[in-house]
Design a protein around this nucleic acid. Sequence first.
DNA 1: GTGTTTGCAAAGTGTTTGCAATTTA
DNA 2: TAAATTGCAAACACTTTGCAAACAC
Lengths: 135, 135
Amino acid sequence: MRPYSHFLDQIKEAGLRPTRQRLALSKLLFGVENRHVTAESLHGEAQGEKMRVSLATVYNTLHQFTKAGMLREIVVDAQRSYFDTNTGSHHHFYFEKDGQLMDINDEMISIAKIPQAPEGMAIKSVDVVVRVVDK
Amino acid sequence: MRPYSHFLDQIKEAGLRPTRQRLALSKLLFGVENRHVTAESLHGEAQGEKMRVSLATVYNTLHQFTKAGMLREIVVDAQRSYFDTNTGSHHHFYFEKDGQLMDINDEMISIAKIPQAPEGMAIKSVDVVVRVVDK
DNA sequence: GTGTTTGCAAAGTGTTTGCAATTTA
DNA sequence: TAAATTGCAAACACTTTGCAAACAC
C-alpha cells in the first residue's frame, strides 16, 4: 500500500486541498492499480470502509480528479458514468450483463487506420469498446 | 421519397401494427439515409412537421424498432441515447461541442487486431467512437 | 369485440446545484 | 478569518411505467 504522503501530494499537485474525503477516495481509487468505478460504486465502497463521504462529494471529487488528469471518464452505458484510474491510451471490454469494465491490453488490439478528422476539427480521442456477453 | 407502402410493410414485418405514429416516425427515420437521432430530437422534428406523437411513444417506438433490428443504439454520451438508422457495422465521429454523430466510412478505419473475448464470453460488438473537437 | 397502442402524468434513475455549516490554510 | 469544501435536500435531465381512452384488426 502506498504511503499516506503519496495521496496527499497527488491531491496537492492537482491544486486541491487534501481533505479527509479526498484522501479517503484517493486511497480507494489509487491504492491498487487499474480500477473502474462509478460514483455509486465508489460511494458504496467508501461506506463499507466506514468512511463518511456524501454521494455529492463523490461526484465532485471524481470530476475534480478527472479534470486534474488523475482519472479518465469512460462512456459505455447511457445510464451511468464510469471512471478509470488508468489514464493512458487503452481500450475496454464491457460486460453488459453486470456492467463491469475490463482493460484491453494494448498489444491485444490495434487500429490500423485512423480516419482524418473532418475539416476544421481535431481528434480528441479514439475509444474502442468491445461489448461482450455470455457465450 | 419511398412510397407509403414501404414504411407500412417494414412495420408489419417487425410484427408491429402500422399505427399513425409509427408510420410518421418511420417516414422521418427512414425517408432519408443514415440518420442519427435522440428521442428528443425526433420528437421535436415530428412536432415541427405537425405530427402528433407523444415523447413516450417516441421512446417506445425507438426501442421497438431497435429490437426489430431497424435501428441501432449508439452509446457516446452518458446523458442521452442515440439511435442510428444504419444498422450495418460501422463507426462514428462524435462532435462533443454540439452532440452530433457522423458515420465513419468503413474504408476510412480499420481495426487490425481484435482481442479475444475473455473465457466463456462472446463478442457482441466492437464500437469505435472518434471524439472530435474544434481545432 | 379483443388485444394493442397511445398519451398523459407520475415515478424512477443518475447527476448537479444552492446554500448553510464546516474545514483548511 | 478568508476561501475552499462538504453534505443535505431540492432541482434536473432523460427515461420508463401505470393506466384509462383510443385504435387496429
